[in-house]
Amino acid sequence: MNLNDYSVTRTTREARIAALIGVVVMAALIAAPWWAGRADMRLLSELFLYLALASLWNLMAGYAGLVSVGQQAFVGLGGYMLFALTMFAGLHPIVAIGLSGVIAAAVSIPVAALLFRLRGAYFAIGTWVMAEVFRLVFAQISALGGGSGSSLPVDIVKSLAASRSGREALSYWLALAAAAGVVAAVYLFLRSRKGLALTAIRDNELAAGSLGIDILRAKFLVYVVTAAMTAMVGGLIFLQKLRISPDAAFSVNDWTAFVIFIVVIGGIGTIEGPIIGTLIFFALRETLADLGTTYLLVLGAVAIVVMLKAPKGVWGFIRNRFDLQLFPLGFRVRFPEKRKGD
């Protein structure tokens, strides 16, 4: 047997097929304004934005080991920045959303400096405290409507596009772009040197430390980048809603609980997991929505059962069964078909 029989490869046949299907699906989704109804497009937009939030939360919790239950801080911050920058600085909404990412990154640096003093689970609750602080602060700003919130003025809405269908198409495309952009960014980041280091940390902190990887800096970077992107997604969410209030903007249920359930059920620590989880979440919601609170009871119970019985979620289950990896991250050694010479 000699070494030439082995080949090292990153891509797999399944990944190439998945990429092909992905291109077709993307094309169909981009064309949605020409084939989908108004309600369908709204639903799809919401789905895309949740997918973006879920992928970001998964990057933090599943790869960087930063379990946050306070990402609503940045969703709300992004939403409020959209309103503030368009209303008071006269910026175009899309420019405002881009700028809100920069602002969120700047805000997240001192926030992270404080919260990183808390270890593990206490970090999680610390992020929640921070989100509460944000909520209470924005409730104090009377120019933004205080506790009752405010609506986006009509002329700002109209600045997006003149016609209603034009605006709907644009905000749909923005949501789609956000989801695709976040998934692609997470994927590329995890393939990068820093990303692989992060995965190494997750899989073995001791080994990663001995490789000289600066664990804290990598985590800090993930926190700041995630905050920026979460805020931009938040801006898009409230560009769809056109109305913002502190309770809606900083809702732990809407922007964290659902997102966590999506990731856990889909498969934490995998890129595919949040995608599957989002699809399952929306399928459940559309079929069980009439049940009201029972729906949430079921969702919580399902998440607990998955966490206890199949901690890698639906995708982990599928991957173990079929050895699939649609977003190849690491390199794999391909063994020769037949051992020669022995």
Binding site: V67, V69, A121, G300, M307, L308
Partner: peptide, 11 residues
């Protein structure tokens, strides 16, 4: 760290 956090969150 994840299981206790996520399970108590679900509870």
């Amino acid at each position: 760290l994840l299981p206790p956090l996520l399970v108590t969150f679900g509870i």
